[in-house]
Simulated scan of single mutants.
Amino acid sequence: MRLHLVRHGQTPSNVEHLLDTAVPGADLTELGRAQADALVAELGEGGVGAISASPLVRTQQTAAPLAAHLGLGVAVLDGLREIEAGDLEMRGDEASVQRYLAVVAAWLHGDLTVAEPGAEDGRTFFARYDRAVADAVEAARAQGVDTLVLVSHGAAIRTWAGARVGNLSAGFVIATGLENTGVVTLTGTPEDGWTCERWAGAVLDPVAAEAAGEGPAAEPGPVF
């Protein structure tokens, strides 16, 4: 099974560095729509047979051009939502963003009990994201599909991949960004585990990326 995890296109909240994690969230910007259109060239000839997205508007708008090109519907899976910001929702100050990223870093290093007030903890996040991936794979298998796209969110993709993909690590995903419409390509299954083949177009080199990281503050841009 080949799984493409795709971050949504740019939104106004990305431009303003806001912690925009709640449903329905912001629409895509003009640039974000162009980024979504560009996914057709990147993934449109790669045998994709199923597409899923989170319930946030921006992921469904990102999925729409590829789905139209392939003649596919877009399944909405609640578990693909972004990691919740809780009481930090729609804040954009540096202290709030760093608090959010510190929660993500704690989960990646094994402490799943940490949570912002009003937000889920790591156990809840991983349970719902694992379920969404498993449901998407199960539906694809039922249709005889072996390549699928899940359109989700920056922090969610990086955190889930850092914990669930065998050749990734906490240090790698903390140090390595995922730009809007960046694609993380995995092979494997939920039962046997996943291996990362490519991260945002580059053949994976997790050792070099991890060595460059300095912890949560190494995040190069908005992830939401």
Rank of each mutant, 00 (worst) to 15 (best):
E82G: 09
V103I: 13
L18V: 02
T189F: 04
V48F: 02
E120D: 14
E138R: 15
T181K: 02
G144N: 10
D87N: 12
L204D: 11
A75F: 07
D111S: 05
D130R: 04
P24C: 07
A217I: 14
T181M: 04
Q35S: 00
V183P: 04
W160N: 01
A50T: 00
E84N: 11
D20M: 05
T113S: 15
W194A: 05
R158Y: 03
D205W: 02
T11W: 04
D135S: 13
A34I: 10
G73D: 15
W194Y: 08
A208Y: 09
E219A: 15
N14Y: 01
F224H: 10
Y100V: 04
D20E: 09
G47W: 02
A22R: 06
L5C: 05
A209Y: 03
C196K: 09
A95Y: 07
E16K: 13
A53E: 03
A63N: 08
V57M: 06
A75C: 08
R128H: 12
E214D: 14
G213M: 09
H8A: 01
E120N: 10
W160R: 03
G144C: 11
I83E: 06
P117F: 01
P216R: 09
S96V: 06
D192H: 12
S13F: 11
Q60I: 07
M90E: 13
T159W: 00
D121I: 07
A134Y: 06
R131A: 15
R91N: 01
W199E: 03
G122E: 08
V23N: 08
F224N: 07
E179G: 14
E214K: 13
G71L: 02
G144T: 11
A134F: 05
R91Q: 11
A63Y: 09
E42A: 15
W160T: 01
A163R: 15
N167T: 02
G118A: 09
I51W: 06
V114C: 11
T21G: 04
V223H: 08
N167H: 02
L80Q: 01
D78H: 12
T124Y: 10
V137L: 11
D37R: 15
E138C: 12
Q10E: 15
H4D: 14
R164K: 15
V183S: 05
T176R: 14
G213K: 08
R164Y: 09
W107S: 12
A95H: 12
V23K: 12
T11C: 06
T187A: 12
F172N: 09
A212H: 03
V203H: 10
E16A: 15
D87V: 14
P190N: 06
A67M: 11
A34R: 15
L168N: 01
L5V: 04
D37M: 10
A22Q: 08
E89H: 05
A132F: 07
V6M: 03
T195A: 13
L77G: 04
D93K: 06
E94L: 07
G47F: 00
A136Q: 13
T159E: 01
A105W: 11
A134R: 14
A106E: 13
G71R: 00
D121R: 11
L178Y: 03
D135G: 14
L56D: 02
V173Q: 03
E42M: 13
A218L: 02
V15N: 08
V114R: 15
Y129C: 11
R164C: 12
E120L: 10
L148C: 04
A134C: 10
P190G: 07
F172S: 10
D121M: 09
L80M: 01
V149R: 07
E89R: 01
A102D: 15
G166S: 13
N14C: 00
T62F: 06
